[in-house]
Amino acid sequence: MANLHRIQWLHRMLLESKYPNCRNVAEYFEISRRQAMRDIEYLKYSLNAPVEYSPKHRGYYYTEADFTLPGFFLGRDEKQRLGYLAQQYMRIPSNATRELSKLFSKITGEGVGEKPYKPLTYSDYEDLISKAAAYQKKITVVYNKQGEKNKRIVHPYKILLRNGRSYLFAFCEKRRDFRTFRIDRIETLSVLPQEYTFHPDFKAYYDLIRLFPAFHQKYTARIWFAYKPRISRFISPVWDKEHNILSFEFLSSETFVVKLLNLDLPYKILSPNWLKVKLKKRMKYFLENL
C-alpha cells in the first residue's frame, strides 16, 4: 500500500488540475521516482482512480473531476503490497521497523518468514538507502569504480537525481570525507545496526553538491591545538601528535569560522595565511560593530 499522505496529496493535486508527475512527487516527498511511480500506479490500479497521463502538460490528471478516494479497505493488491512492505521493513535492523513489519504481516495474515528469499538488485538499493537514511543507519557498500571494487562503510544522507541517474550523497568512514556514489555502480549493499550522526559540515557540503555538482574546491588548514580535539568533526583529518597539529580540509571560510567558534580549547591557525587575514578583518569589523 502506498503511503496514505502521499496518496492524499496526489489526489488533491489531481483534483486541482496541477498535473503532478513522478518527478514532482519524488522531489516533494524526497523519495525515488520508482516509488513515486508505484504511488501513481496504486492510485490508478488499486483504487481505480481515473488517472491518465497528459503529454502536453507532462503530468497526470483525472478524467472524471468528481472522483473521491475510497475509505479504508484491503484488497488483494493491498495485501500483496503490505506484504512487500513487511519484507522491506524487516530488512532494517531497528526494533521500530521490525514491529511495523510484524504489524503489516498481521494485517495481511501472512508471516514474513514464509516468503522465499530473493537476492537484491541495484534497483532495490534506492529503497533500502532511503530507509537507512530515514533511520540514520550506516550501510556497507561494495562500490565498483571503473572496474576497481572497494568496500566502504558510509553514512547515507540523501539520494540525488541528476541527468536521469540516481546518486547517493554520503559520508565515507574510510576517507573521512563526503562522497557521491552512483547507485547503479553499487554491487552489494547491506544495512548495519549502528546509527550515525550527521557530520557538522553536512549542510554546507550538501548545498554545494546539490546546486553546483561539478565544483570541488577544498582548502587545507593546519592548526595547533593545546590538546587533541574531537577529530571526527573535521574533514580528512590528520593528527600530528608530536607537534599537536591538526591538518584538515575545509570547504569555505564560513564553515571554518563556525567550526572554530564551537571549539572550547586553545588553538592557533598556522595556515593558510589568507584565512588568518580574512578572519582578523572580519573579527575587527565584528568588534567595531558590537
Binding site: S252, W274, K278
Partner: peptide, 11 residues
C-alpha cells in the same frame, strides 16, 4: 574565498 591555482577553470 580565494581561488586555488589548481581550480582555475573548474567552476
Amino acid at each position: 574565498d580565494p581561488l586555488m591555482y589548481d581550480n582555475l577553470g573548474l567552476c
